[in-house]
Design a protein around this nucleic acid. Sequence first.
DNA 1: ATCCTAAAACGAAATCATTTCTATTTAGAG
DNA 2: CTCTAAATAGAAATGATTTCGTTTTAGGAT
Lengths: 144, 144
Amino acid sequence: MDQRHATALKAAGMKATPKRLAILEMLEAEPGYASPEELWKRLKDRFDRLGLPTVYRNLEELSESGVLSKVIHPNRQLYYYFCSNREHHHHFVCLSCRKVEDIPSCGIEALEHEVSKRNGGKVLSHILQLNGLCGGCADNEEKR
Amino acid sequence: MDQRHATALKAAGMKATPKRLAILEMLEAEPGYASPEELWKRLKDRFDRLGLPTVYRNLEELSESGVLSKVIHPNRQLYYYFCSNREHHHHFVCLSCRKVEDIPSCGIEALEHEVSKRNGGKVLSHILQLNGLCGGCADNEEKR
DNA sequence: ATCCTAAAACGAAATCATTTCTATTTAGAG
DNA sequence: CTCTAAATAGAAATGATTTCGTTTTAGGAT
């Protein structure tokens, strides 16, 4: 089951260490995004020694490799999310329960093209994230 | 000339203090985005007393009121940009010279609608920002 | 014009998420 | 099984941002 993760790590040119595998397992099991510290607290039990910096470092590296994705949060803390979707896509983030849903098509290619054409600039990356309430949380909201 | 800014502040329900006006003037004169500390350093000369926390607080308040806009930066520090465009729009940010250009149409309404329909969620806000090199910086890049 | 009060600003100190640093351990190629 | 570059530990540092109690001020009311 984590042969998948081991393979993903190798593909990203990273060693498949037990801690990295555990981080991936834990995040994959998570229904929503999680912070480095939250993950660390839960992971500590499974290792006699596990430093918080290790969790930070790995989450960042995994996110750079595209194995994990980062959530942009108003409180400016770091949150990560396991997303097996390897296509280009974006996320709808529930502000209430932290669930993250994929948004398949982003339609930004057209915008990028327009920007390049209009001002001669070159678009290197883009950030797109929808924030709101997921189906379940929106329902609960209404019942109040 | 800053009667405009005073009016904008009043409209946002904020007092038109000299320091707020100075912050707005300075940011408006700026070709690109700026950090709280940068603004503070330049503004200090114009007031016998000006605290960095005051600059932070005002930038945040002004951004919440929609008078200023915030830039999402990879280094996770705060940057602000004066944008007189009152229509809904987004920004193309030059990673090299900090210039910010408006992107008029964002086409996200369609995405929002799709998300609501598909999963029953409610989209409350969205983040969209293009990063890259502006026309001038892209040209310089090529000449190297 | 002056008064008055809520809002704004001071600035030193605190916060605290994130990063750095050096020594130690380990994955995995050979 | 060895060896080396990569990964980790853990304590300590960092530094942008925020807090707090006090003082000042903008601007509506008098």
